[in-house]
Design a protein around this nucleic acid. Structure first.
Lengths: 199, 199, 199, 199
DNA sequence: GCATAAGCGAGACGGTACGTCAAGTCTTTCC
DNA sequence: GGAAAGACTTGACGTACCGTCTCGCTTATGC
């Protein structure tokens, strides 16, 4: 079932230091509060984590992959689609959480490097597989549930519906950099629901 | 005494070379097809443009501002909201254009550096004033026209409506990196219209 | 600084360019009190003299030639071999003056660039022709006078004798950077005289 | 200094590469044969030595200090005051060696930058402590020996005597740029000896 | 319990690009 | 029409990091 460290770890030598890994991830997140991606140096992360540069390069191929990993770890349990009593509430909660995540330095940075990267890059693929796809699947389950209970029209395109919900959040937070208040979120969900609800 | 000297005393000394400026902007756009933001060097731009580095730094404070300027110049007349026979067609055309722009290396790069930048940065402010705000105002005029002719509900929030239209484009192109076909654009406009149209 | 271009516009056209030349020479001497040769820029001289850079390059080929010229002009009448009542006093006076000149920033600088330059350089040749040779000839006249009045041995090598007098001054001022007091000068002249005097 | 450091773990991290140091010093000496001080670039030295620029700046603060170091290393055993059978021969040999050293590009360059530098500069101080002072002390021992065996007058000022010997060498080589032949050296030592010898 | 081996912090290495500065040239306007 | 102002190309500066490579350790496994 759980294909974790099933493999017989028989490799000789000193094992990887989890303390170092944690320190590196924390230093990365810390320093992103002060520096933007371009001016954040691996050297600074190593110094701040009390770690040798080589230790970072041993486990992460480059700065972008390290930041992505830090992002994935730090947001692992942060965003979850809580099953609310109804679809409206589910998405309201989810959109609020999403906005919070991408209002964070590391969230903004990860989005920026993903936006800049090519579609076929390891970075984009990892982000898609480890973050985007799982969350979208979860969200789709909510929509499917809505359809099954007759709340939503069975003819809607799930992906389009979700793009309509999430797109404006990315746009406002990352591009327009405006605050997201309750009213906006409500309006947003209202508008989308109006288009996909059963009459 | 010498008040009549006032007339048009325009700056002494050798004037700025427009040829150099054009060469720099073109080199920037050219090289963004080969290099991504992080690996694009000012040195390479200068060499490619046949220009000294100092000439670049004289007119642009940093790489991001240069790229933004190149973007603004290259897209100056590229995107315009053509007055179509109806609102639906207007936005369909506009969204298509927008997708084309952000499918371009410089478009993707500019969005990435804007996303990464802070709300108060000169970069974000310039982008907002020179690009986002003017286009949004144009788009609002279309919506207002739609309201005045009774095609759209007078109670809609213009900004929310436009976020719903544009947000999914940014999301698909920059984050999901999916192709945008006619069907999607049509669906998108349909969905949004359904929410803001007069019954 | 340079009080030129006052009125005196009696004739049509540009005022005399000698004012600019003087301002440049003065600025060069002034700035050598603050900056050493390597960090003294033509740009700073031009700015300080209220002159365009091109005006400097029109008259002097490079920084070294400008400084040499400034040195030659500023020391034109400064060093002269005063005919004293006797040879001893003549050289005592002359050595004192020499030490004063090469204790000056421009004197030290000129010596340094001469020392660094090749024997065949325009710089070294100009310095030799315009400064070293004339002064040495003057000094030789003093020695010859001493011989003619029977005070000095007729068999002495004039050049060796003068090297013995001047060499130690250069050595102390430029290399050892020690103060030259009366006692040293006296000792120096004593020693040399002892070797070249008629018994 | 700290002798007990012998046991303790001495400076961690990768140790300095002696090969790099040697390559840098050699490149410096090599390139001074082609370029003069002003046109010799650190960049060229680094390239010629197959070394990164930072490695040069890590160990030498500036170009002058590097050249001085190269000079000190390259002349470490080159000049020595060989104990000859008599004082005359000792100095004849020593002056010959000195002339050879300062006829070299690096010798001429070092003297030039020392002449240009201020008395209190690190450069002048290092040159004095590492080169001038030790050699002068050696030379003084020769003079003192001459006094103790009754060959030289006990009343002579050692420093003045040595300035008389060395000053003319510097003057001829660096300023007048004349060749030094045996005759001159002999004359020079003769003259000085005549002034300091016991009758 | 000692050898083997990988991981560790530290930091020097060969490099690349930075952003600055000045050199020497060129182009415009003004006097 | 010459001189100022100042933009131009060029190229070195000294700095900051890159990603790699020793060092002298430390920490595990396995013989």
């Amino acid at each position: 079932m759980a294909d974790k460290k099933q493999q017989t770890r028989q490799s000789i030598g000193r094992p990887r230091s989890e303390a170092a890994k944690t320190a590196i991830i924390n230093a990365t997140i810390d320093l992103l509060n002060e520096y933007e991606y371009a001016t954040l140096s691996i050297e600074a992360i190593a110094a701040h984590a009390g770690v040798g540069k080589a230790t970072i390069y041993r486990w992460w191929g480059n700065k972008a992959l390290l930041i992505l990993d830090a992002f994935l770890i730090s947001t692992k349990e942060q965003i979850e689609l809580l099953e609310k009593e109804n679809i409206y509430e589910s998405f309201r909660q989810q959109l609020q959480n999403l906005a919070a995540v991408f209002n964070t330095p590391i969230g903004r940075t990860v989005t920026a490097i993903i936006a800049e990267s090519g579609a076929d890059s390891e970075l984009a693929k990892t982000f898609h597989e480890s973050y985007l796809y799982p969350r979208r699947e979860e969200a789709k389950k909510v929509l499917k549930h809505g359809i099954s209970v007759g709340e939503l029209s069975p003819s809607i395109d799930l992906d389009v519906a979700l793009d309509l919900l999430y797109g404006p959040i990315y746009l406002r937070v990352l591009i327009f950099k405006t605050e997201l208040d309750e009213v906006f979120i409500n309006d947003l969900v209202d508008h989308v629901m109006k288009g996909i609800r059963t009459v």
